[in-house]
């Protein structure tokens, strides 16, 4: 029995020793001397946003560690995913979710790329501080196995936000003594904007039409429309009459696509039946042209103008009636041609 108790104590002592040794290693990892900074250099890529994290968020940081010979990273000292972080014995609620480690070995140094992903497993009713890390890495001197040192990856401080505002908010207490900007009624401006846009579009269409057809309105680009406008601008004189007659001749020829004379008037009327209603006036026009251009002694008994100005007024009216015919309108019948008045 005594022997059994002795054995029990021996086992108990060994167990205690084993636990002590394990604790001693963990303690050693933090209590190891720091590495001479000349042998190691670190660069970290930390999250840009340091606030506003809440439960479930994953925060990543990357550490690039270059260790110069003769030191070498003890890879078993890399942090283990799932390991709870504590601060002053309290679980801080930040857990290493995953780690990716790659290294590049050169002659005199080794570069380690360590990607750490932490996940938040805590929340609070108000914002609270937290930190990623620190992490302790152990390094060994390859020339001296007893020379084991540590390197501390510094922490990154973050703030964890609550999911919702805690408690009830009394609106009356939360009101500002200042009046905020009142929303303006923009109906009027919107109407003006719409009208302006419509006007702009119509103007643009009109401009296109002007540029395309050289006329302000549909049908104003017709041959006799142009002739009529040109005739109205002519000076009222003998020379103006001659030019007016020439303009009407040109209009007739353009309309017919051949030169119209009194001897092919029937051909013109057959081709342009819209003008049949003007047959009498066409004949009078050619008689007037005969007097103006070719035979001054000729007097048309049916169209004896008392002055060139009156004749010119008649030509203008005749051109307007030609324009009406061109537009498919029926010119009103002449009751009694009054040549003296030119009307």
């Amino acid at each position: 029995m005594t022997q059994f108790i002795r054995l029990f104590y021996i086992l108990l002592s060994f167990s205690a020793l084993a636990l002590t040794a394990r604790n001693a290693y963990a303690i050693d990892s933090q209590n190891l001397p720091d590495i001479n900074p000349t042998y190691v250099s670190m660069k970290s890529i930390d999250p840009v946003r340091l606030v506003g994290y809440t439960v479930g968020d994953v925060i990543e940081r990357e550490v690039i560690l270059t260790v110069k010979a003769p030191y070498k990273l003890i890879e078993t000292s890399l942090p283990i995913p799932g390991y709870e972080k504590r601060h002053k014995g309290q679980v801080i609620g930040i857990e290493l979710k995953s780690i990716k480690h790659t290294k590049k070995v050169d002659d005199n140094s080794t570069t380690h790329h360590i990607k750490l992903a932490y996940q938040v497993f805590t929340n609070n009713i108000v914002a609270k501080n937290a930190a990623l890390g620190p992490e302790y890495l152990n390094l060994v001197n390859l020339k001296n196995n007893q020379d084991i040192v540590k390197f501390r990856i510094p922490t990154v401080d973050i703030a964890i936000s609550p999911i919702a505002i805690f408690g009830q908010v009394k609106i009356e207490n939360n009101m500002s003594p200042f009046l905020g900007p009142l929303p303006l009624n923009h109906d009027k401006e919107e109407s003006w904007l719409k009208l302006s846009l419509i006007f702009l579009i119509l103007s643009a269409l009109g401009l296109l039409y002007i540029l395309g057809m050289r006329a302000w309105l549909p049908r104003m680009g017709g041959t006799f429309s142009k002739v009529y406008r040109a005739l109205r601008k002519q000076e009222k004189s003998t020379q103006g009459l001659k030019e007016s007659v020439a303009l009407v001749h040109a209009g007739l020829s353009t309309t017919a696509n051949f030169t119209v004379f009194s001897n092919n008037l029937e051909q013109f009327l057959a081709l342009k039946p819209n003008f049949i209603g003007l047959k009498l006036e066409l004949e009078q026009f050619f008689n007037l042209s005969r007097r103006i251009n070719f035979e001054p002694k000729y007097l048309d008994p049916a169209a004896n103008f008392d002055s060139d100005v009156n004749a010119q007024l008649w030509v203008i009216k005749f051109a307007r009636r030609c324009r009406d015919c061109e537009r498919g309108l029926s010119p009103e019948k002449l009751a009694t041609p009054s040549m003296k008045a030119g009307l």
Binding site: F261, F294, E295, K297
Partner: peptide, 11 residues
């Protein structure tokens, strides 16, 4: 019976 030539006369 014209006293001057017209284009129709030429035609």
């Amino acid at each position: 019976e014209r006293t001057a030539v017209l284009p129709e006369d030429i035609h």
